[in-house]
Write a protein that binds this DNA or RNA. Structure first.
Lengths: 350, 350
DNA sequence: TGCCCGTGTGGCCACGATTCCACATCGAGG
DNA sequence: CCTCGATGTGGAATCGTGGCCACACGGGCA
């Protein structure tokens, strides 16, 4: 027995054991314990084993914050996404989490909710925690530039705001959008609406560009009144879709620029009794589970968020390794998954 | 100018400013800077403002790890979920993230992937980081008991393994399952299958109990051959559903015990040309977006994962505040969202 | 015998912030 | 004039680890 009711020193018996306790219990110095547990520096094999045994018995787990403070190097990365309820971001987070753990890093995840204020707060929290790097699906250039000014490696994911200033990992939105639009044109559609949430971010810009490029490549004039800016959430977009489908000359096909908008269009069509694909063809950017569950299935561009997350982590570690290398943008290709939501238009093209 | 090419002391110009730099630039001591920035202790107003101004100009952000080390109290919580790609867990994480940020805590999120080994690793990482508390959707009692032994507050979410040893926040699975089963019985169904993934966790046990309770309450004998244990993923469950629907005497209704199993049953029915609800009624536990997108919509128990996350965070902070209070289990009620997937059985009940 | 080297281990400081305590300053009152 | 209290500020210890450096020990060789 080492102590009676009152411990000779240290008042709180519930406190977690430190390296000091381990050292005393093993009868060696703290330095030796450190060497034995980290494997850096020399310790005699018998001593090493005894120390490890004792540490295990005491349930000793080294304090990562103290270690971090001493080593000036953190073992965690910050991740900031826009909306965890969106399966795209959820999948992205899952991919990142997986990759981070493989590298023995912890992930600090925050949901910015698309709000610049929240994102700024989160960015500062990441700086305070001295994370090794940050992955962000940005809603402005603010977060990235702030973090870069703070010397923290950043990779923008899914879209790029701080072009040139930091790395980015994105999907080749333009090619995929062009390819999926071309399918509709090939089927004979001419009145193809693009329902899109924004056109200033790289995602929106490039999807719009791909849409237009498909028209240009087919030698078909595009009608800009068919490019509809819908809101951010399903509700607002559904109303826009109602208006669009209620036009005197409604489109024969709709390209929804993301999964939320696709859901809105899908709901609106159902509510108006517009039959897909007989009266309306639908394609979407961003393949999510429900698109293969509904009848007909929705033809969609599949982004593979997990692969995107993996690429982002890889790029981030590359950046951490070589902080001064020139900024790089990685483009992942996306494939089109054809389902039943597309058919020739109900009446011949003029 | 304070320095020429070679700084008088400190070699790395790229290093982040510390409280020392702020103190020197403001012409006060480090103690004063600390008091000025934290607001604890007295500082003359003019000095305080000058210090804050200087800190802002230097882009100084206090090191949370150093602060944590000194204060022996962390400002982050660990969260361990089973599968971020499942909308239920994603919503849960979103709710937790939101609540944590409101309390100015950072969330460390990990996806355990349902693997006990991964979960054990993550738990140890949480201990190393000295998180203030942990929320876990457990797959065994291991993680919770380990963390409790390590004196770390834990709340089990969605299911309970370490009964009595730690807090839990769950939905009232039994009532909800009974209620949704009773609907099918009321419609005249007698051959009601329960497709379930496991029956040892509280979730499975209670949903099974609710299912049985509904039969008992209705005075209808239950047929245990209709309780089908399907696998964990959609693929395996889909095969089971095929077998179930191909039986000589197939069920007239199916109760899928979670959203993954519901998806599997839905797909199987579509593949076999079994019409819902004419030939088969379907109800599910756990309402997820696709269930309102398909035709007919799937009648489901809505769990509100965001509310669950909020309740979990609340309970965790309660536990942190009063570490020795007796363990508490919080039950959230769930509501049934009726949609078109249920109808009377195709032939009269015998 | 004395020196050197290899093997093992401990002492001590630093990492960045907080916080207790002491002290300096100044005005007022005895 | 001395003391006391109020008002501000700085010094120094501390949190848990890591890692540099010094040193003890013992054996081999000149």
């Amino acid at each position: 027995m080492r102590s009676g009711l009152a411990a000779p020193e240290g008042f709180d018996p519930a406190r977690r054991p430190t390296i000091r306790e381990v050292a005393e219990a093993a009868g060696v110095s703290r330095s030796t314990v450190s060497r034995a547990l980290t494997g850096r520096g020399y310790v005699a094999p018998t001593v090493r084993d005894r120390v490890r045994q004792v540490a295990h018995e005491l349930g000793y787990v080294p304090d990562a914050t103290a270690r971090h403070l001493r080593q000036q190097a953190s073992q965690s990365i910050g991740v900031l996404v826009s909306d965890l309820n969106n399966p795209f971001y959820a999948g992205l987070a899952a991919g990142i989490s997986q990759q981070a753990r493989d590298r023995r890093y912890t992930m600090m995840l925050a949901d910015g909710g698309g709000s610049p204020e929240v994102e700024a707060e989160v960015a500062e929290a990441f700086v305070a925690l001295r994370v090794a790097g940050v992955l962000v699906t940005p809603v402005s250039a603010q977060v990235s530039t702030y973090l870069i000014r703070q010397q923290i490696p950043v990779v923008e994911v899914d879209r790029r705001f701080a072009a040139g200033a930091c790395d980015a990992v994105m999907v080749d939105n333009e090619s995929a959008a062009q390819s999926v639009t071309a399918r509709l044109l090939d089927l004979g559609h001419r009145r193809i609406a693009l329902v899109i949430d924004e056109m200033h971010w790289t995602t929106g810009q490039n999807r719009l560009a791909g849409y237009r490029a498909a028209f240009a490549a087919a030698g078909v004039p595009a009608d800009d009144s068919l490019v509809v800016r819908a809101g951010w959430d399903v509700e607002a977009a559904r109303k826009e879709a109602h208006v669009l489908l209620g036009r005197a000359e409604p489109p024969t096909a709709i390209f929804a620029a993301n999964n939320v908008l696709a859901e809105a269009v899908w709901r609106a069509a159902a509510e108006l009794g517009v039959s897909i694909p007989d009266q309306l063809s639908l394609v979407a950017f961003d393949d999510v589970p429900w698109m293969s569950l509904v009848r007909p299935g929705v033809t969609a561009v599949a982004q593979d968020p997990v692969a995107l997350g993996e690429a982002a982590v890889t790029q981030l570690f590359e950046r951490i390794r070589a902080p001064l290398a020139p900024a790089r943008t990685v483009l992942l290709s996306a494939t089109v998954t054809a389902r039943g939501s597309t058919a020739p238009p109900p009446y011949p093209a003029r």
